[in-house]
Design a protein around this nucleic acid. Structure first.
Lengths: 231, 231, 231, 231
DNA sequence: TATGAATGAGCTTTCATTCAT
DNA sequence: GATGAATGAAAGCTCATTCAT
C-alpha cells in the first residue's frame, strides 16, 4: 500500500528493533532454508546451517518452526502452493483462446517457479520423496493436486469451446506437465537430461513444446464431424 | 554348483572355486547395490544391507569398494554399456512410416528400459547426479548423447520424407524424451508427479502422448506452404 | 477487583495495587509449581509452564527465583509449616480406646493430607529428595520427626493402658506409617505400586490395614504373661 | 559349576579374547547401567556414561541394546523379574506353615532385592514412572503383577489351610507389600521416611512387621467357630 | 518491574568406516 | 581373504537461563 502512507501514522514509531526482527524472522529463515534445501537436498541440510545462514541460533529456528519438516512445508507454501490462488483466479478471468491461455499459463509458471530457486524444491521432491512420506504427502496435496486440477480445467475449457479435439483428459494433462517437469530436471540434474554443452533456452523450449502440444490438441479436419455431433 | 565342474570348462582350470568366488564378488555387490539404491535411494541404503543381500559381511564390501560413494559409481558404470547399439541398427533397417517408427521406438524403449530395473538407474541418476559430477558426465556421454542422437535422426527422417512439418529439432526432441522421463519418475517417486490414487497405465499413457506428439508433428493443411502465414 | 477497594482496608493503605501484586507473585508461582511438580515430576515440569499457570512470563519467574532448583526448594519450604500442632492437641484430649484413636488418626490423616494436594508434597519428597539434600533434612525435621513422635505416643498409650501387647516401638511405628505412605505412592505413581486396572478404595484400604494392624497389636491369650514363652 | 572343570576341556582354548569380550558385553553394560540408573535416575543417566563405565563407546552400547528403554528393561529383567520363576517354584515346593512361608518370602526378597542395588530400581520407578509410560507398563507387568500374584497365593494358602482368618485378599496383599516398599524408600530417599540418625536394621524391621502381620492375619479365638464352618 | 526473543549445551540414536582376529 | 565388533562424528530437538527492551 505505497499510496496510503499517512494511514500508518498512528503506528508508534516505537516498533522496536527487536519487534521488527521478530516479524522478519520467519521470512528470513524460510529464505535461508530455500537456498540450502535446493542446494543440498532436504536430508543433507542441517537445521543449524539454516539458522546460521539466517543469522540466528539453532534454538531460534525452533521458536518459529516446530520441526525440520514444518520448516520445509513453510518453504513450499511460501514459494509454490501459495501461487495457486493467483493462478486459479487468473484462469477464471481469462478471456482469450484456450491456446493462448495455456501458453500464458506455461510461461507464467516458468517465470514464477521454473526460473526461480523454487523449482529446486520440485527436483528435491523427486529425489527424496520416498524417504519422507509425510512431506511427500504434503507436497502431493499442496502442489501436485492443485496443479493437475488447474491444467485439467484448461483442457476441459478447450474441449468445451470446440478449440481442442476430444482428449483422454487423464493422460493429456501429462502432455503439459511432463515438459515442464523435464525442464526443471534438466536445470537441476547436471546434464542427466540434456546433452552437455547444450543450454536449453527456456523461452524457445516452451514455445517449441507449446507448439507441438497445441497442434497435437487441435481439431484435425476429420475431427470436425465426429466431435461436432458429440455436443 | 560343485557337481558341474565341466560346464565351466571355458573358465581357466587354474581358477579355484575361491578365486572364482572372489572374482564374482564385486558383481554380486553391485547387483545388490543397484536394487537397493533404486528402491530406497542412495542415502537411505545402508552398506550393511547391500553386503547382506550379496551374502557377505560389511567388512568385505569395503575390501572391494573403498567407500559408499565409490560403490555407487561402480553401480552406474557397470550398468551402462552400449545400450544403444541395438536401437541404432533397428533404426537403420526400419521400413515403415516415421510415425510408426516413433511409436515402435517408444514402446520398445518402454519394454526394454522403462518397465525394467534399468529405469531405476535413470531415476537414480536424476536423484543423485548432482552429488556425483563425474558420474553424471559419464552417464551423459554414454546414455543421453546417443539417445538424443537417435531421436533426432528419427525426427529428421520424418521431415525429410515430408511426414512431419518443419520442426525446431533441438527442442522437438524433448517432446519425445520428456514424457518418457516423466513416466519413469512417476513410477519411482512415490506420487510426487502424479496425484495420489492414480496409477498410470503405461500403454495408455504412451498411446496418449504419442497421439498428441504425432498430431503435433504432423503437417497441418496450411503447412503445405510451410510457415507462410504464420507471421 | 478494582471496584472493591474498601474491602481491603486491613491491608496497609500504603501498599499500592502493584506492590501488592508484587508481594503475591512468589506465592502464586509457588502454588503453580506445586501443582505441576506433583503432577509431572520435577524434571518434566518446564519453568515456562509454571510461569504460564501463574499468569506471568518466563522471565518474571527468574526475577523471583534464581533457578528451577531454588523454586523447588521454595515450594517445599512454603508448604511445610507446623502441620502437627493440631494433631498433637487432639491426641492430648482424646478419651476413647487407643484402637479408636489410631483409627481416628489414620482416617483424619487421610482426609486432611492423603486425599489432598498436600499428599503431592509427600510424593514429591520421595521422588526428589535425593537431589535436594538440604530440603530433605528440612522435611525430615518438620514432618517426619513430629509424625513419628505422635504415632509413637499413641502406641505407647496403648501399651500403657494394656490395650496393646508389648511392641518393639521403634519398628512398630512403621506398621502404621508404611501403609499410609504406600497409599500416597499408589495414587501418584501411575500404577507402579498397584496392578493396573485396580483402583484402591481409600476407605476400604484403610479399614483393611487398620484391621490387620490392630489385630496384630492386640494381646493374644498367651500374651497375658508377656513374652514369657517366647523363648 | 565349580565341580565340573574337566567337562569344558573340549572348548577350544582358541575362544579369542574378542569373542569372550562379546559374550561378556551385555552383562557389563547391564551392570554399569544398574549402577548409574540407581545413582542418578533414568532420565538423568546418559547412555554415554553407561557405555563409558562399561569401558566401551556409545555406539557399542547400541549394538547390544536398541534403545535406552530396552537397556533399562534388560536391567530390570536381569535384576528383578528374572527372580520370580525361582520364587514361584520355591512356593510350589514349600512344606512348612504359611506363616513361615511368608517370613521366608520376605526375608529372601530382602536378601535378593531389597538389600541390593536392584532395590534402587523400585525407587526409580516411583519417581519417574509417569514420565516414561512404556517403561512403567513394562515394570508393572514384569514385576508388580507377578509379585502381587505370588503374595496372593501365599495368603490364599494360609486361608485354605485354616492358618489365617478370612481376609479381604485384594487389600491384605498390601499389608505385606507396603512395609517392603517402605523399606526400600527409606533406604533411597534421604530420610524422607525415617527420622534422621535412625538407621533401620532390616532384620529387625522385617521381624517386627512380620510379627504384626502374622498376628493380624491369625485366627482370633472368636474366629475359631465362624471360619471353621466355612470349609 | 516485566517481558519474551534468543541462546546453546546436552541428549539419544544412526551408520560409514576401521581393524584385530 | 573375510569377518563383525567397535568406533565416533553427526543430527534433530528441548529447555533452563539470559538480557535488550
Amino acid at each position: 500500500m505505497p499510496n496510503t502512507p499517512s494511514s500508518n501514522d498512528n503506528t508508534p514509531a516505537t516498533a522496536t528493533r527487536r519487534e521488527r526482527r521478530k516479524e522478519a524472522r520467519p521470512g528470513e529463515l524460510i529464505d535461508a532454508a530455500l537456498d540450502l534445501f535446493v542446494e543440498k537436498g532436504f536430508a543433507a541440510t542441517r537445521v543449524e546451517e539454516v539458522a546460521a545462514r539466517a543469522g540466528v541460533s539453532k534454538g531460534t529456528l525452533f521458536l518459529y518452526f516446530p520441526s525440520k519438516d514444518e520448516l520445509f512445508k513453510a518453504v513450499v507454501r511460501e514459494n509454490i502452493s501459495g501461487r495457486f490462488v493467483e493462478w486459479n483466479s487468473e484462469f477464471e478471468g481469462f478471456e482469450g483462446s484456450t491456446g493462448d491461455m495455456l501458453g500464458y499459463c506455461m510461461n507464467s509458471w516458468w517465470e514464477r517457479v521454473g526460473a526461480t530457486k523454487a523449482s529446486g524444491l520440485t527436483k528435491l521432491m523427486m529425489s527424496e520423496a520416498s524417504n519422507f512420506p509425510e512431506i511427500a504427502a504434503f507436497y502431493q496435496q499442496e502442489v501436485i493436486q492443485p496443479g493437475h486440477t488447474l491444467i485439467r480445467r484448461i483442457l476441459q475449457r478447450g474441449m468445451d469451446r470446440g478449440e481442442f479435439r476430444s482428449l483422454d483428459l487423464d493422460y493429456a494433462v501429462y502432455s503439459v506437465v511432463a515438459p515442464m517437469m523435464f525442464m526443471i530436471l534438466s536445470r537441476h540434474s547436471m546434464g542427466v537430461c540434456v546433452p552437455s554443452n547444450v543450454e536449453l533456452d527456456p523461452q524457445r523450449y516452451i514455445a517449441a513444446q507449446l507448439g507441438v502440444i497445441l497442434n497435437g490438441f487441435s481439431l484435425r479436419p476429420d475431427d470436425a464431424r465426429p466431435d461436432a455431433r458429440k455436443a
